[in-house]
Design a binder for these strands. Structure first.
Length: 568
RNA sequence: UGCCCGAUGGUGUAAUUGGCAACACGUCUGACUCUGGAUCAGAAGAGUCCAGGUUCGAACCCUGGUCGGGCAACCA
């Protein structure tokens, strides 16, 4: 149960192990991750990346990166770069096996010629509309095209002229000759090539016909020696076509790739489709593809997620064929688990309330020892300045605290982390608004951390920052982008943006201990008692340091106070 | 009313292939704590979509339903 080798296998591993036992494809395991460069990668892709590269590693095989770039009208170089960057960042390596479906355009063309010669493909002169109409419906068979029985020679001639650019876009296609009455729509003479006078990000203008997914994908797998072609469930119905194309090219008993489908990842309170994510970007609802609220890999990275946390998340969600919705709490658990071990602790007050220690000498200052990471002694200690005026968190004080509130209140005592025990003597309010603006407290000099009476029991420990030494930091507090568990579950006429959370981003200025100013973009720290934060790589400048909250700490007080709130 | 796939605690995944449901997250106790974090100890929570059948024995096999998802781009 604890050794990965003893852990039960998911259904894909079971298939692979059976193939290995049967010496299929000489017991090789070779997978691939085949993104289309038309958008940024998201956490769902991360699951697939971890799966494919993980399988390659586990079975001593290989994993290729292949860009599925058969549609020049949607694909861009920018996406290629971001995708490679994200995969590397996640910790995976395709070594020298970087491929593009467009690398195979020639090969694919030659093979298409072969199918035509074998009377397995034909050129159809009809319009898109005609073809669509003839395809039938899932419950009604399709009609054969009037061009279906053209001679091989005519097909050859026409297809070559399509390639030579003699016809305008949309005037002709090459179709596989299969079965217009198949109950599987994808077998009703699917289109193999369309005419597209478009410039391709890699092949430029050398082609004006481009292969369709079904024709390109399986053959690319074949050319690369892929053994297990893993994709998501919506391609399940394509598998007969995947196999049919291979049947035309592969001899019985020879090497052949195999398509296996698994259920894609869904996360509660988020959307995962590239189209919808693109919409959020284009409409300016978020701050680009790497907005820290986005489920994109670049967004999670900017938010402060670590590759390790994403990998362990992918591990935990498992692989199966049934539709699933993973609780975001699991993702959050995964980062906390990782960050707890790794990140240094710092004191920072997000919503400052001034506290004056009336019996602490005016101009006295102290340096107090603070532990960097209680989970990791090797991280050592640092010093934090202490003085008469400090800031504490506003919500660590209540004028009329309930029994279970273990923090500061009139007449109450609490410990200041690494410092003294203080007692609240007086509450100062703004006479106009009634808002608490300052607390007058006394400190007990005997209770300094490490001193004899420091073991005195108090209800709670607060984080704080010396006012004189405090530095301003910008803090960005993120919450879920959508308020509905399934943003797509909306009534007619409304779309997924209906439940957008207006408070998904709150920007405030906090007060931080001086050591925090040393943090560099991407650095991750725990603000003690508050959460994990990372230095934003986009808005941080030499004058202003910006922190993104990756995830708050688990907060059992919030749970208590929320549940009593609800009861009322 | 065609075809393909799926159905196991709140969520996700297991059950070594027919031996009487486990793990993780979440939830709830309690201990500990100079983070209401972490850690530790423990608990509740499913009898496996339904109905039949085969079997000494079924979450696993068979039959028939039910429910959910997918399929009609010259997208991937």
């Amino acid at each position: 149960m604890n050794q990965s080798s003893e852990r039960s296998l998911n259904f894909i591993e079971q298939i692979i192990e059976e193939d290995i036992r049967n010496n299929k494809n000489e017991s090789r395991v070779h997978t691939r991750f085949p993104p289309e460069p038309n958008g940024y990668l998201h956490i769902g892709h991360a699951k697939s990346i971890c799966l494919n590269f993980g399988l390659g590693k586990k079975y001593n095989g290989l994993t290729n990166l292949r860009f599925d770039d058969t549609n020049p009208t949607k694909e861009e170089e920018e996406y290629v770069k971001s995708i490679m960057n994200d995969i590397r960042w996640l910790g995976f390596d395709w070594e020298d096996r970087l491929y593009y479906a467009s690398d195979y355009f020639n090969h694919l063309y030659e093979w298409a010629l072969k199918l035509i010669r074998n009377d397995k493909a034909y050129v159809d002169d009809q319009t898109v509309e005609d073809i669509r109409r003839q395809r039938g419906t899932p419950t009604r068979p399709g009609l054969e095209s009037p061009y279906r029985s053209r001679s091989v020679d005519e097909n050859l001639d026409l297809f070559q002229r399509m390639k030579n650019g003699e016809f305008p876009d949309g005037t002709r296609v090459l179709r596989a000759k299969i079965d217009m009455s198949s109950p599987n729509m994808h077998m009703r003479d699917p289109v193999m090539y369309r005419i597209l006078h478009a410039s391709h990000h890699r092949t430029g203008d050398t082609w004006c016909i481009y292969p369709m997914y079904d024709w390109a994908h399986g053959q690319s797998d074949y050319l690369e020696g892929i053994t297990h072609s893993i994709c998501t469930l919506e391609f399940e119905i394509h598998r007969p076509l995947y196999d049919w194309f291979l049947d035309q090219l592969v001899k019985e008993g020879e090497y052949r790739p195999r398509q296996i489908e698994f259920a894609r990842l869904n996360l509660s309170y988020t959307v995962m489709s590239k189209r919808k994510l693109l919409e959020l970007v284009k409409e300016g609802i978020v701050d680009g593809w790497n907005d820290p609220r986005m489920p994109t890999i670049s967004g999670l990275r900017r938010r402060g997620y670590t590759p390790e946390s994403i990998r362990s998340f992918a591990d935990r969600v498992g692989v199966a064929k049934r539709d699933n919705v993973i609780d975001v709490a699991l993702l959050e658990y995964s980062v906390r688990e990782d960050l707890n071990k790794k990140s240094d602790r710092r004191l920072a007050v997000l919503d400052p309330l001034k506290v004056t220690l009336t019996n602490y000498p005016e101009d006295r200052e102290e340096k107090l020892d603070a532990i960097n990471n209680p989970e990791d002694d090797s991280k050592g200690k640092r010093q934090i300045p202490f003085s008469r005026e400090i800031y504490i968190e506003r919500n660590d004080f209540m004028e009329d605290p309930p029994r279970k509130f273990f923090r500061l209140g009139p007449g109450r005592e609490v410990r200041l982390k690494y410092a003294y025990i203080i007692k609240c003597e007086e509450v100062i309010k703004d006479p106009a608004t009634g808002q608490v603006v300052e607390l007058k407290c006394t400190y007990d000099p005997e209770t300094k951390s490490g001193m004899t009476r420091s073991d005195k029991k108090v209800k709670g420990t607060l984080h704080w920052v010396s006012a004189k030494h405090a530095r301003d930091i910008e803090v960005r507090l993120y919450d879920r982008l959508f308020m509905q568990e399934d943003p797509n579950d909306v009534e007619e006429g409304k779309d997924f943006k209906y439940s957008l959370n207006p408070d998904s981003l709150k920007i405030t200025t906090g007060k931080a201990e001086p050591a925090l100013l040393e943090a560099r973009p991407g650095d991750k720290v725990q603000f003690e008692r508050t959460g994990y934060f990372c230095v934003d790589s986009k808005y941080t400048t030499s004058e202003r340091i910006v922190f993104n909250r990756t995830v708050p700490l688990r907060d059992s007080w919030a749970k208590i106070s929320n549940s009593t709130h609800k009861k009322k």
